[in-house]
Design a protein around this nucleic acid. Sequence first.
DNA 1: ATATATTTTTAGACTAATCTAATTATTAGT
DNA 2: ACTAATAATTAGATTAGTCTAAAAATATAT
Lengths: 221, 221
Amino acid sequence: MASETVENYLKGIYAIEKHLDGKGVSTNAIAEHLQTKASSVSDMLKKLKQSGLVDYKKYHGASLTAEGRSKAIEIIRRHRLWEVFLVDKLNFKWDEVHDMAEQLEHVEGKALSDRLDAFLDFPRFDPHGDPIPDAEGRIRDDRQKQALSTLATKDRGVVVGVLDSSAPFLKYLDHLKLKLGTSLLVEEVIDFDKSVKIIVGKQSHSVSHQFAKNLLIQKEA
Amino acid sequence: MASETVENYLKGIYAIEKHLDGKGVSTNAIAEHLQTKASSVSDMLKKLKQSGLVDYKKYHGASLTAEGRSKAIEIIRRHRLWEVFLVDKLNFKWDEVHDMAEQLEHVEGKALSDRLDAFLDFPRFDPHGDPIPDAEGRIRDDRQKQALSTLATKDRGVVVGVLDSSAPFLKYLDHLKLKLGTSLLVEEVIDFDKSVKIIVGKQSHSVSHQFAKNLLIQKEA
DNA sequence: ATATATTTTTAGACTAATCTAATTATTAGT
DNA sequence: ACTAATAATTAGATTAGTCTAAAAATATAT
């Protein structure tokens, strides 16, 4: 009976943990991620510890327990499956699905996500290129992905994901005719501001370093 | 921004209103329907009136305003569409979908229900035979349905709906090989206890009056 | 190592929705 | 019309989650 709020905390802590290695997630980081106040987070961490979902020592941050992590992964699984459904079956665009998936992910029922998974033919990635955990919570993602900003002049690669899935960024990608699977060539990396000239199809575009940091590429040999 | 709770109140009041004609729905009736206490209902009715969703005079019951009714119908639309999805696409059985639909119905987004509707090919009835309101909230159900309990000996008809969609009742129907569209013949109505002998396919069954009151039939000429 | 800055926690209040118990209105029976 | 029964409302408490402001702990800088 995890409440929606609890689920959002678990998901948030999981997301922050991924970027850190090992150590506890700070109260402030959680507060910022969830757009709430540190005091609320402190309160909630006490409860989550009580429920055995996080390890938590006052003033020393929190980390998910095995149970907490498993719940977080199930929510991420649901979120990404629903996104696939919304895009592939209901024909929404990839910049339109986040808010709906954010609600759908809280609908309970293990059978529901498993059957949805089967109905969608066990997709491995969601519309933004993020890997979808399988029914046992395993996340298998063996792609060698790296930010466009880490490529060098003349490197060639394929778009495999984004680090920013906000609507503005995704719409800009659409504008540049960039989607998952699109090939591109790095024509030039400008030393001055680290902006990148890329060639997509027959078009050449100059994109900012900020942009390049958020686009994930699988480099071609 | 109607909360889930508010949506459930509107749906509940709508359901009760249908059985009554015209007059206000009583506090107690709502409390019973929503499995809550009359005092909670009193509180909530004040708020719903405040929001313009119900007309309400203390001690004299409540009724939906046009806006409240429209919201209620949208929720019923979502509920029934999701039920179709769960049964037709995810292969759940008709006795398994209620709780999931109960959660899914609260997911917001007019585009969501409309696209789901299209994806399902604009179904007119849900898996229990209840009509699905269209995108404009119109409920078109021109079937001449009546409870099995109102049929007479030798009457013939087709199952078109249920008044009780609880899992036990639906499972019993499965057991009797009765589903939407199944033809049956009333072999005999027992005067003593109003139980009904029906013939389904080659099988003859005796069902209680209680049962017969909950099965909706379209009589054949 | 100590003062300062930062982070985190606590204390106390607020909101939405609920409950129980007590009170007040309405309805029904004679 | 008056009393008894029923139904509905209010009063006051409770819970989950949040907030602000104040206090306490930890981290940083010289």
